[in-house]
Design a protein around this nucleic acid. Sequence first.
DNA 1: CATGAATGAGAGTTCATTCAT
DNA 2: TATGAATGAACTCTCATTCAT
Lengths: 225, 225, 225, 225
Amino acid sequence: MTAVTRSPGPTTSVDVAEAVRAVRASSRRRQLLDAAVTVMGRTGFHQMSMQALADEAQVSVGLFYKYFGSKEDILLAAIVDILEAFRDQLQPAMDLAGDDPVLQLMAGFRRYASIVDENRDAVVLTYRESRTLDAAGRDRIKELEVETSAPMRSVITAGMADGLMNEVDADLVVFDLMMLAHGWALKHWHFAPGYELDSYVAAQLRFALPTLLVPDKLDEYLTQI
Amino acid sequence: MTAVTRSPGPTTSVDVAEAVRAVRASSRRRQLLDAAVTVMGRTGFHQMSMQALADEAQVSVGLFYKYFGSKEDILLAAIVDILEAFRDQLQPAMDLAGDDPVLQLMAGFRRYASIVDENRDAVVLTYRESRTLDAAGRDRIKELEVETSAPMRSVITAGMADGLMNEVDADLVVFDLMMLAHGWALKHWHFAPGYELDSYVAAQLRFALPTLLVPDKLDEYLTQI
Amino acid sequence: MTAVTRSPGPTTSVDVAEAVRAVRASSRRRQLLDAAVTVMGRTGFHQMSMQALADEAQVSVGLFYKYFGSKEDILLAAIVDILEAFRDQLQPAMDLAGDDPVLQLMAGFRRYASIVDENRDAVVLTYRESRTLDAAGRDRIKELEVETSAPMRSVITAGMADGLMNEVDADLVVFDLMMLAHGWALKHWHFAPGYELDSYVAAQLRFALPTLLVPDKLDEYLTQI
Amino acid sequence: MTAVTRSPGPTTSVDVAEAVRAVRASSRRRQLLDAAVTVMGRTGFHQMSMQALADEAQVSVGLFYKYFGSKEDILLAAIVDILEAFRDQLQPAMDLAGDDPVLQLMAGFRRYASIVDENRDAVVLTYRESRTLDAAGRDRIKELEVETSAPMRSVITAGMADGLMNEVDADLVVFDLMMLAHGWALKHWHFAPGYELDSYVAAQLRFALPTLLVPDKLDEYLTQI
DNA sequence: CATGAATGAGAGTTCATTCAT
DNA sequence: TATGAATGAACTCTCATTCAT
């Protein structure tokens, strides 16, 4: 399962051999990281032995130590990976929604939730294991989370400036939206029987939009959910 | 720190000596559990060694094994402890708020959030370590969480029946409210600089009430937050 | 094999229970250290696995880590142990030889060599493994070696002052004597077939004394070897 | 650092290309061996990883396995290398000293010490790591050491036969001289601050010659040191 | 009721060695 | 000839658990 959708990056291959090696190395890294997320999702970080991890990835234990400095490094890499996906994919998805701040916000939330859905294990991981990391790792995570929240926050600020949205605490609203999206992973045991991702997103938008929109605008958007 | 406010329980003290012993035993248990929550809050369950735990509680390692069957038992006890506090204290707090379902809901959320505040370590623990438990333990947790949600769910159902509240997905709303309350513990690093518990509760109520109330009722309640 | 002869130390047992525990602990430490020297003598420090060590000492691996911080600590303790034996037992042995500096020196060398003989493994260890230690450990060793050399150096200085001995480089002579004594352990494979400890000591004294004594005094002492 | 001065060996170059290859191979071998001695001198055999060794030699790990069968083989080769230098260079150096057995012995000791000086790391290695080798390797070392001692032993025997030297245990004296020369490497931390190689050699000759020479001959040679 | 010395299985990590390129 | 990615056995060290006192 290679859930994290990553941007390919420009390959200005000066040296072919080196490029090939780099690609192979990078795909190796992905393979290892994916295996790690899978196993951690199944058993948790601490219960995961390096041997079990190696078995899952179908490589030797030692190989992990060529790509990561330590077991904890693997955890950090896995968490940073998913958080970067959030950060990098939110703005583009919102841009596609046109100029309307409300529609942009809705698109942002929808994309956010779908990334959560594609990486449920990894999202749970960010909650479960961030305290496992050292201070530097934790700071990196918090930083990424704040960066991720930026596009949705600015669109709310813009909406308020335009008079489209009520005066709210934009920062709080954004973190609430992110938490509700995380809920799809965190409380999946509870929601999965009754919801699909789409219906969950729709329900949460119906929950959250009323605080943002004046009554007469609300209906207009609710029908578009 | 004995954060969990627990109901005293009926003391049918037939034999004084036995009662004293029971109390001491129970206070011992509390002492040990409090120490466990403290250490786990600091380092996490897996990083906590039984020796460190014994040092924190100022007793020997062996003593823990008189009160708990295993290290994992301690974790389960600590988590169940906090979840029982939620379950047992929500209804009473809501009863004190009178008959108005909206005011009851607000009181319930407020009480929920204040328990979260008093047991931030333990709440984070429920997110971090529930996967550590075996299936039976996890089921117990889920069960308690569902039980806890009952009072708030019924009051919303009642509010909708009375026409006081909009038609919403009551279950989803309750879980959302609980998640937002948990947010005070989970994202404390983000919210603590800008919020006190009271202002956090007020802000979240302003966020959540619009979805529940018809516009003309909304203002009336918002002023009471 | 408990080769290192150690001074018992005063036991002002205020608290009997504690004293008993202390004694037991100290004898444990000796037991573990003796096992370590034995195994290291057999296989060398790096080839010695902690499991093999535990097997030799007939205890569990974990127990070693209650008494020593790390494998390297065991090595340092073993080396320091033997070097302290040299340092502590040389002066007393020399004092027993009376006032004559030459006789004192001979007694010192004889005692030094007999400690070497009783701790051949440990002596070889000091040569083989001192580079294994960290800088602090190596410094401790050098310090002890210099301290050990003090009694023999002063007796030579005294002998020269009295006119009993020729003018020599006292420090060099002492280090030479120590190296020749070490030779009994280091080159045991070569000397053992032809020498007993006593004859080795005698031969080395015959080798070393001529440089120290004027010809007419020499014969007098050589007959006493 | 190519400290070991090695005899070129007979180059019966039938085929030039092959000779070139052989030379290159042999210089490769030297390069690898020198790197090994350097790293081992710095860190010890066991602490030296093949990767560190390859880095030092600026080649790949795999290449070492073209020239040596195993890591232990490298150690053996390094030790044998230095011991062969001793064995091969002692007799020629002594021959240059003329016919006088005493002067020959002095020249032998001086050469021996200077080889020690040029290969301090390697000499320490022979003490530190010989136990690391298997029985066959250890036997090879002992054999070489005995072979090395031969020229000095025969010159002493000759000296005694000529009546130039006192009756001594020739074998013991030679081993003592070698140990004292080794001391320049083994106790370099102690002697280096006060001695140069030359003054160390001189001091040790003043220490050792009195046992060999009758008093009236002694002065004559001491002035030539 | 309370202790803490002792256990030993299992963890993360390293590294000599191989082999396809 | 030379590389270095990959292996996996073996290592040191930790720590939950027990039990004699």
